[in-house]
Design a protein around this nucleic acid. Structure first.
Length: 427
DNA sequence: TCTGGGGTCCTAGGACCC
DNA sequence: TCTGGGGTCCTAGGACCC
């Protein structure tokens, strides 16, 4: 049997840990640039606010109902996530974190008739120890465990834990479960299934496997098998990341090449640091920037450039230099770039690097310097030492009228990871 | 005017090989 | 006028997840 633990309204719950006065009130957390709603309290959901809804479209409602808005604060969410995960991992086996607020684990070391009580205790421990409300679903496949966890979340009578153990329970749960809410069924698949007359998960499972395969291909077949109780989706694979991305949407579109170069350099440096934390190197760098897809009044433009490196590397200086020269090749003047990003690809273990016979770089020396720079950042904080290209160029800082590149108007303090913020709050 | 960020997997189709 | 078959590798784009 699998158990799935899912934090309720995770980002909002994180904000509430330090703002208990917001318990019972409508609260939302916004995406980067304060653009869209990405987490909603139950009260906000009850007001009809949808996931992913742009903030500007609900401005009136926000003011009328006194909805409390937060800019996203990922160092806070990451830190609380680590605490929740550590608590679960300590008491379970074959633990696998699936996302920032979800994990699968195995509870076969507990007798079957005690598994539910065990998970109920886990829910209480997390609530008391970290302050985050969690729901747990138990079933024979991961997709069914997801179904169970949704029931656990929806009905307080379950005390946070729901299990689908018998076939009667499975059929009953699926008979009133909307097909579009099934893990793996997205908008397109839902539309296809609806036109085939399928609205519940149960109806889907009652069609033959060939129907699922024919309409939704391999992923659809896997979902069909999982809903029928077979354990076929494997998430234990994925030992190493295949790509690392850093990208941002800007508050106002940017045309300046030097301002964009500064952004690209910072995105790339951030990716490179992630790479080194994982003891990996990248063999390709992909750079892109584009106009706002929502603007119909301007010509759309998508700039992208892929560079394959002669030798895999995690060195910030080297990766930034490739990223910037790629960007310079593709940059187009007088274009309103609204978003840009850097992706590192073809990632392999640092010990698997294949040397280049004609390499001109002293890599041992570069690595030593990089290690020193990382240690300085570890000790004195992120960005203690950065490349010159990561700073705004003097001409830009003079000309730009102090307009911020990103919008975060509702950010909460870094309660758990930055002491300076706590002192600021107390003052 | 204002619309997120970071991932994975699958598939079709083109390039290329013998 | 007539113009193969079978395979691999790579890439872009679609779909999905949280």
């Amino acid at each position: 049997m699998y158990a799935l633990a899912d934090c309720n309204n995770f980002f909002v719950s994180c904000e509430r840990v330090f703002r208990p006065d917001l318990e019972g009130k409508p609260v939302v957390v916004l995406s980067g640039n304060d653009g869209c709603v990405v987490s909603r309290s139950n009260e906000a959901k009850a007001l009809g606010i949808k996931m992913g809804e742009p903030l500007y479209q609900i401005k009136g409602l926000v003011e009328k109902e006194g909805i409390v808005c937060f800019s996203s604060n990922f160092s806070l969410y990451g830190d609380l996530s680590d605490r929740v995960m550590a608590l679960i991992r300590r008491h379970t086996s074959r633990f696998k974190q699936y996302s920032i607020d979800e994990c699968f684990f195995n509870i076969d070391h507990i007798p079957a008739d005690q598994q539910k009580a065990f998970c109920e205790q886990l829910v209480k421990d997390i609530r008391r120890g970290v302050g985050i409300p969690v729901s747990i679903g138990i079933a024979s496949s991961k997709t069914l465990a997801k179904v169970a966890s949704k029931y656990a979340k929806k009905y307080p009578g379950y005390h946070g834990v729901c299990e689908i153990r018998t076939d009667e329970q499975r059929l009953k749960a699926l008979s009133v479960f909307e097909i579009g809410d099934v893990w793996g069924i997205g908008r397109r698949a839902k539309a296809k299934l609806t036109s085939a007359g399928i609205t519940t998960a149960l109806q889907f499972t009652q069609r033959p496997a060939s129907f699922a395969r024919g309409l939704l291909h391999k992923p659809g077949l896997l979902t069909w098998q999982e809903l029928n109780g077979q354990d076929v989706i494997d998430i234990t694979q994925l030992p190493m990341k295949q790509s690392i991305t850093t990208s941002r949407t800007f508050a106002t579109a940017i045309t300046s090449q030097t301002v964009l170069e500064e952004q690209i350099a910072n995105f790339c440096a951030h990716c490179a640091r992630q790479l080194r934390v994982r003891h990996s190197v990248a063999q390709q760098v992909y750079v892109y920037a584009h106009t706002s897809p929502f603007r119909t009044d301007i010509e759309q433009h998508y700039l992208s450039e892929l560079v394959t490196l002669p030798v895999g590397t995690a060195n910030t200086q080297e990766l930034v230099s490739y990223a910037l020269s790629a960007f310079r090749r593709a940059y187009r003047p007088n274009t309103l770039y609204k978003k840009a990003g850097v992706v590192l690809l073809k990632i392999i273990d640092e010990n698997a690097v294949i040397p280049d016979l004609f390499d001109t770089k002293d890599r041992a020396r570069d690595d030593r310097l990089q290690r020193v720079l990382d240690r300085i950042d570890d000790r004195h904080g992120k960005r203690s030492v950065i490349l010159g290209t990561q700073l705004p160029s003097p001409t830009d800082s003079l000309s730009s009228s102090a307009q911020p590149i990103y919008k975060t108007e509702h950010k909460s303090p870094l309660y758990t990871t930055d002491l300076r913020d706590i002192f600021t709050v107390n003052v």
